[in-house]
Design a protein around this nucleic acid. Structure first.
Lengths: 236, 236
DNA sequence: ACCTGAACACCGTTCAAGT
DNA sequence: ACCTGAACACCGTTCAAGT
């Protein structure tokens, strides 16, 4: 029994059929994002990705410059899908809300890589568009240059923080271990001495698990907007 | 010419004299924190630390369980130095301010490792004390269990965010390259088309460099407290 | 109690070479 | 244009052995 002349290619093609699309820059980035969501950002390695594509590690270097560039591209990719809203000419600070909501939605699709967004947001087209819109709204609300820069930054960072810091967001650990991890944390808090940490014990549940993500994100955005609105009344 | 019987020990002792204190769990953690501040968290490796102590990598495993435990210990160490204030019985939500201020001060001492705090804060004694105090204040302000859990979490995370997300905080890059990096970013923003990104161009400076850190942190805490205060008036 | 030596399974990356 | 092979310098970690 002899192997067919191109058995190696054949098996590779078969593996690709399982693995999905052929090697390309886009495919690499998407696969890296999925991998990060499933097993954590630490699981993303050039060699691991190459294995998934049934290709040698060096093949990836044709499509991405190096690992740093891959990580940047992942962050940029997450933001680029945001469909930035048109900026109404009226509406005051409330016009910030749709910006933040859309960004949350985009980040929430890839929580495992959301922290990468922090470093890339001002380098992507849509990220810059969102920042420009935020700065415009803040300028019209009367904030000076320094203040609106800080508030725009805080807006974007708060959104990132909401996602990566959500209760029960253990994105650094493989998917199947996450619930175990949450349960362990919760039990740890619940077992604290009640006389010294009554509130921590009482809040063990809501501190370790997010029952209603929609409400969580809405409340998070509310908090930020309430803060900005309060500061705005102080200056006028 | 023969070497003295214990020449190896002698040179090692000499190296230690340069390197500082002898090997110990505390020393390892402190050195790791300093290394992270100078060269970024990525520069912290077991082997690199061992080299700094003039010792084999395996020697470290006597003092720390593994690298993960070292990273946790670094985060815990940063928080443990906080001298949690006594909680006044009166004063309302403003009592949150000293909590956040002291945490900012502590984090600010090790910006390169501050992100590690996110995962360890509820596992340290002082972290739990701060959280318990925050929850107490929020409970007395009338927030329900779910809300005060989310707000306490937001409080601690906002502080972390303020430090790691400060303009010009390029903690992932070696110390000597940071100014260059900031200048590059600023130039990039300033070079954007003025017709499409007028505010981004205008704010290129304040977005990439922090002129007055004290004011920056104070304003950041103000923003959060203003938000919480506004939410508090909505429920009562 | 504290440290070393040898070994293993990973990692990113370069460079010349293949098709 | 796109991929491979070989090689290099790193990394975390285990285990048995030394003192």
């Amino acid at each position: 029994m002899v192997s067919p002349p191109n058995s190696r290619t054949a098996t590779r093609t078969a593996a690709r059929a399982e693995a999905g699309p052929a090697l390309s820059r886009e495919a690499v980035i998407d696969r890296a994002l999925d991998l990060a969501d499933r097993e954590g950002l630490a699981a993303v390695s050039i060699r691991r990705l190459a294995q998934d594509f049934d290709v040698t590690p060096m093949a990836l270097y044709w499509h991405v410059k190096n690992k740093d560039e891959l990580l940047s591209a992942m962050g940029e990719r997450i933001v680029e899908v945001v469909d930035a809203p048109d900026l109404p000419t009226e509406g005051g600070l409330d016009r910030l809300r749709p910006l933040l909501e859309r960004l949350v939605d985009a980040l929430h699709r890839h929580p495992g890589s959301t922290e990468l967004v922090r470093g890339t947001i001002l380098r992507t087209a849509t990220g810059r568009q969102l920042a420009e819109q935020a700065l415009t709204i803040l300028a019209e609300a009367g904030f000076d240059r320094q203040r609106r820069a800080d508030l725009a930054r805080a807006a974007l960072q708060s959104v990132v923080m909401l996602v990566v810091g959500a209760p029960g967001a253990e994105t650094d650990v493989p998917e199947q271990d996450r619930q175990t991890m949450r349960d362990r944390k919760r039990a740890e808090l619940a077992a604290l001495p009640v006389d010294r940490f009554p509130h921590l014990v009482e809040c063990a549940g809501p501190l370790t698990e997010c029952e209603d993500p929609t409400a969580y994100y809405a409340d998070g955005i509310d908090l930020f907007l309430a803060g900005v609105a309060a500061l705005a009344t102080r200056i006028s």
